[in-house]
Amino acid sequence: MSIQHFRVALIPFFAAFCLPVFAHPETLVKVKDAEDQLGARVGYIELDLNSGKILESFRPEERFPMMSTFKVLLCGAVLSRVDAGQEQLGRRIHYSQNDLVEYSPVTEKHLTDGMTVRELCSAAITMSDNTAANLLLTTIGGPKELTAFLHNMGDHVTRLDRWEPELNEAIPNDERDTTMPAAMATTLRKLLTGELLTLASRQQLIDWMEADKVAGPLLRSALPAGWFIADKSGAGERGSRGIIAALGPDGKPSRIVVIYTTGSQATMDERNRQIAEIGASLIKHW
């Protein structure tokens, strides 16, 4: 067993022997301040990774656009098919120029040779490549099948209805392509620590998230040296922004954090800054 596999296998073990965790309302004060600064709703939840206990939450059962955070769930569904012998990570998928959609920095470079399922998941999570996500959605049967996968996990809230990039439209009061912070946090925890996926697939999923290259201005910008984070960000229309993450000190994750916002007129930089400040408060009061 590799060191990384050992780390993920012992996530519940280490967490069980940690000192009790206590909620700190100071972080919620910052979440509410972010709402004021952005002029928009902000949803927040913080779960203990081992027990699933909610440590703090704000608007945990209000719907927010998922945006690209759905790509972690998508690759979880792909990995479940791999575990069941219905898919192979090494299978190569070929596609054409007509398949390319807006923001496809990886797939646009491989029109000639195609990409493997493993490479597509890596591109979808680490670079948020939209064509990679659409190609992977095709392998599982489309958005409705991802929703069905989530329902089978016990998540009857999260739903995907459309493809990239239309799913980022974020129309107010439109339930399409949305989740709730509580539902997303619980589902992410199941994917990373539950028995739904094999140990190898859980490790692969967290490795992809740990290698995320496009979430630097968010929670990662607030992390002290030595902290662990595996995350996936999302951005959408109407001032929408979000991030889902597993993080913790001492090089291992111990909490799940989900943050979503929508309806702001603020710039992307300002949305990023507010999420980073929430992260800084979380870490300060850990």
Rank of each mutant, 00 (worst) to 15 (best):
H24K: 10
T27P: 07
K30Q: 07
K30F: 06
E35N: 04
E35L: 01
E35W: 01
Q37P: 04
Q37I: 10
G39H: 11
G39C: 10
G43K: 01
G43R: 00
L47Y: 10
D48Q: 05
G52I: 03
L55T: 10
P60Q: 14
E61H: 12
E62L: 08
F64H: 01
M66I: 08
M67R: 01
M67P: 00
T69C: 05
F70L: 10
L73G: 12
A77F: 05
V78F: 05
S80T: 11
D83E: 09
D83H: 05
D83C: 04
A84T: 12
G85C: 08
E87L: 13
L89Y: 14
L89I: 14
G90I: 12
E102G: 08
S104K: 03
P105C: 03
V106Q: 15
V106P: 03
T107N: 04
T112Y: 14
G114D: 04
R118N: 12
R118H: 07
C121I: 05
N130R: 02
A132M: 03
L137C: 07
L137N: 05
I140T: 13
K144E: 10
K144P: 09
E145H: 10
L146F: 06
F149S: 14
F149G: 05
N152R: 12
M153T: 08
H156L: 09
T158C: 03
R159N: 13
R159G: 05
L160D: 03
D161T: 09
W163Q: 09
P165Q: 06
L167H: 01
L167D: 01
L167P: 02
L167K: 00
M180L: 09
M180S: 13
A185G: 07
T186L: 14
T193I: 11
E195W: 05
E195M: 15
T198F: 07
L199H: 13
S201V: 04
S201H: 15
R202H: 13
A211C: 09
D212Q: 15
D212V: 05
V214G: 12
V214K: 07
L218T: 03
R220L: 04
P224S: 12
A225N: 14
W227N: 00
F228E: 04
D231F: 02
D231K: 04
K232I: 02
S233C: 02
R238H: 14
R241K: 15
G242T: 01
A246D: 03
L247T: 09
G248W: 02
G251A: 10
P253R: 09
S254Q: 14
S254M: 11
I256P: 00
I256N: 00
S264H: 10
S264M: 13
Q265F: 06
T267F: 10
M268C: 14
M268W: 12
E270Q: 05
N272P: 02
R273T: 13
Q274F: 06
Q274T: 07
I275E: 02
E277K: 06
I283V: 14
H285F: 07
H285E: 07
W286V: 02
